Amino acid sequence: MTAERSRAAHARDHSSLAALEQRARELLDPAYYDYYAGGAGDEITVADNEQAFRRLALLPRVLRDTSGRSSATTLLGDPSSMPVFVSPTAFHRLAHPDGERATARGVAAAGLIMIASMAGTVAIGEVTAAAREIDREARVWFQLYLQPEPDVTEELVRRAEQAGCTALVVTVDSPVHGRRAREDHHGFRDLPPTMCAENMRNLPGANGSGARPIAMSPDFTWDHLHRLREVTQLPVVLKGILHPEDAQLAVQHGADAIVVSNHGGRQLDRAVATLDALPAIAAAVAGRIPIFLDGGVRRGSDVVLALALGATAVGVGRPVLWGLAVGGDKGVTGVLDTLRSEFEHTLTLCGIAELSELNSGLITARGVVAQ
């Protein structure tokens, strides 16, 4: 058995994503593992994202026919085999030589949507091409940091459009970079010389063929969303919404969807856990646009909890990286198939015949039973 096949088999044999993370940690350079796993400050928000799910319990229904249920759905008109997508994460070649190409193949094999990071170590055109090697109808969305120079932002949008991306996901929670102690400990500042953020090559104002750094800016406002609308017809999703008033503003300013996200705890430590923020945001949005959520999803039962509290779909980030590190594209598919199996099993045990039946009546606090 080749090393790659052995690693993929190992990925499939793990009974939980927590066990898979431990295997990935053993394989990865410690600096790279900590780059992926770490968060801002004392990593309180990183832990809270997962703990928020553990504070809740399910109230199952019984004697309900669930035999004909399908997990398939659509997200902004794009088909997805279940209400799960792959959240954008950076620098996949630190985990596997094929980087985002392998991730794209693995996600496509699972029938899901991948949100490709602007900070990818593979250019977006190669990412979409890799996905469509597996499934000609595979959907890829492009995550975008607005850049201070409008022509740079517009060029990135054009590249995403030309690559066949079907939505833009604009990260709005990063006016500055987060401060992460683990990266400081390792002195992790730059990628190895053989890698760069490939989407940042050959942009306006760059010297030669080098890759520009990704700029963060505290100057961006809601007006910049309108400017983005002027240069693209793609759906625009705002990622990084935690306050219900911002959710209302997103609707008012024409966002096609929002992602309730705290950047996996990598930006503002002590930011509210995404699951805790979700109910108030769902109430504020009141069904006008889809609400996605990421942060802390580690089990299929977590997907059920988030959907019952108002999410349209949920994203997974770090677990996909662990699958990539352990088993390449097959490791990625294995992670997503594990979530699918757990999700469908939980739905059956809760007596849910249709995804539309998921609601807050299915949820209670642990130790508290509704009367």
Rank of each mutant, 00 (worst) to 15 (best):
L358D: 11
E149K: 10
G210K: 08
V326Y: 09
L249E: 15
L144T: 09
E149T: 13
A250C: 12
R54N: 13
E100Y: 05
A19S: 15
A325C: 08
V297W: 06
D329Q: 10
A247C: 07
G331Y: 01
D256V: 07
G265I: 11
F292D: 02
G300V: 10
A129D: 06
S117W: 01
R298Q: 03
V86I: 12
L249T: 13
G265W: 05
D302K: 04
L268S: 06
A37W: 03
D151P: 11
L28Q: 06
A52N: 13
L168Q: 06
H96R: 06
P88D: 10
H253T: 14
E149C: 11
G361Q: 02
A181I: 15
N359V: 00
T73I: 15
D78K: 01
A18E: 14
A353H: 01
A72Q: 09
A271W: 04
S356C: 11
T312M: 12
L203R: 01
R12L: 12
L56P: 07
R229C: 01
T364H: 08
G164W: 05
D184H: 15
A3P: 11
A129P: 10
G240D: 03
R270H: 13
R136A: 15
L191I: 01
A255D: 10
D184S: 12
A206V: 10
A116E: 07
G210I: 10
Q147D: 11
P193Y: 07
T333Q: 14
R299S: 04
A131N: 02
R25S: 12
T73C: 15
L275R: 05
Q267V: 12
A257D: 06
E230D: 15
I113K: 11
P30N: 04
A197T: 11
R61I: 00
E4C: 04
L355G: 00
S6Q: 14
Q22S: 15
F220N: 06
G264N: 06
E161W: 01
P319V: 03
L355N: 04
L242K: 04
E100Q: 13
H243A: 07
R23T: 14
N262K: 03
D135W: 01
R69W: 09
G351T: 09
A306I: 04
T73Y: 13
A47P: 10
Q371Y: 08
D329N: 08
E230H: 14
T348D: 06
G164M: 10
I124Y: 00
L203S: 02
E154F: 05
D48V: 10
D173L: 12
N202R: 10
T66Y: 00
Y33L: 04
A306V: 07
E230N: 15
G317D: 00
I258K: 14
D29A: 13
V122N: 00
A109F: 05
D98P: 01
I363N: 00
D173Y: 03
G323L: 03
G361H: 02
A18S: 14
R105E: 12
M1H: 08
P244A: 07
G178V: 02
S67K: 09
L362Q: 04
R229Q: 14
R25N: 15
V260W: 07
T346P: 10
G41P: 14
H186L: 07
D13P: 02
P204G: 08
A40P: 05
